[in-house]
Design a protein around this nucleic acid. Structure first.
Lengths: 190, 190
DNA sequence: CTAATTATGTCAGTCATGTTGACTTATTTT
DNA sequence: AAAATAAGTCAACATGACTGACATAATTAG
């Protein structure tokens, strides 16, 4: 193991992550502390997204497939347009990945009941199984991190993440979360 | 203020979709609530990383350039090997991006003083300026989100993100953070 | 009813960023 | 002197983005 830096012992920070607040060495929201938060987000996301990669490789899929599979599995009856809105990618980008998921029997398409132009998306049994396998290590990671981060951590981090999302997207997120019925959802109700 | 996203229990959404909360067995956190946290992380990261894109486009750079520029700017004197360890990409991937940053006068290389095989990396004045421009909207986003998320949010989210990182990486992260560029950061002196 | 709009699909080409594998050069360590 | 290390390079390839143009079917508006 290559040591990046020669000095090894930093007892005040090595065991459990302590903040500047706790050490009383800095203002509560110092620049440095903010930058570290940004970097922690990068590291956390880096490791978080790496979890499902091994499983995906078994199927010849990548992360793009994971995203699509996850949201379709989680919100059955999603339309292509909804997915585009969620993923913020182009139709052509989505098409390739979606086609592979359909061709490999992970996702099924059904014409919309009231609007037959729509293709409502659903996971098959296989697709559901894979989606569950993929999210399992990510859930475990989150649960563990929440347990280590105090009782407030779930509520607080939920709020923080929500507030980090573009406010123009807040309504879409809430609408997605409250999507409990498959038939006529997706239309913008006034 | 915003008690957004406070629904603990959601009704089942579809017969086809079998989640554990439909069985009535909710652990304290709730599967559904955990999945929403995962989705919020996706949305937050999606919007967070989109901030610098416009600026990067001006220079013909992408996110890969941003990452390299950020870490070199933040931790001057970083070696190529350090960057590889941070970014978890291959040397060949890094090389392309790094070369472009060097060629465009954003990053300079200096042979290590004690080991002349090393290429210590530093941002130039231009590079520093760009790095600051890039992080500015991200800082603003974080600050705003922290303000909206309560007094605890900085400390708690810092802990959570840290705990989401692979524990095998904890030491590397702490070592990086303690790597002081003495002038700008008032960091805990031991 | 016709015309416009919408939802989706598709062809074709390009770019950014990641990968593997093999090999070189310079330098330091053993 | 030999081995190990830090970095750079060549080549080929995969993934997942992008743009732009166009096609088809169905719905909605005039």
């Amino acid at each position: 193991m290559t040591d990046i830096i020669s000095h090894n012992n930093r007892p005040s920070r090595s065991a459990a992550m302590q903040t500047d607040d706790e050490t009383g060495k800095n203002d509560s929201a110092g620049i440095s502390s903010l930058v570290e938060l940004i970097e922690l987000l990068f590291f956390a996301y880096r490791d978080f997204t790496s979890d499902p990669d091994t499983i995906l490789a078994e199927f010849g899929f990548g992360r793009a497939h994971h995203r699509v599979l996850h949201f379709v599995n989680r919100y059955p009856g999603l339309r292509v347009a909804d997915l585009l809105d969620i993923l913020k990618i182009t139709k052509q980008s989505l098409a390739r990945v979606l086609k592979q998921l359909v061709d490999s029997g992970m996702i099924e398409q059904q014409p919309g009941r009231s609007d037959r132009r729509e293709r409502r998306l659903f996971t098959t049994k296989r697709g559901r199984k894979l989606a569950e396998r993929l999210i399992e290590p990510q859930m475990a990671r989150i649960v563990r991190a929440l347990e280590l981060s105090g009782d407030e951590s779930h509520k607080v981090s939920r709020k923080l993440l929500y507030n980090m999302i573009n406010s123009t997207e807040h309504e879409a997120v809430m609408k997605l979360f409250s999507r409990t019925h498959a038939k006529t959802s997706g239309k913008r109700p006034e």
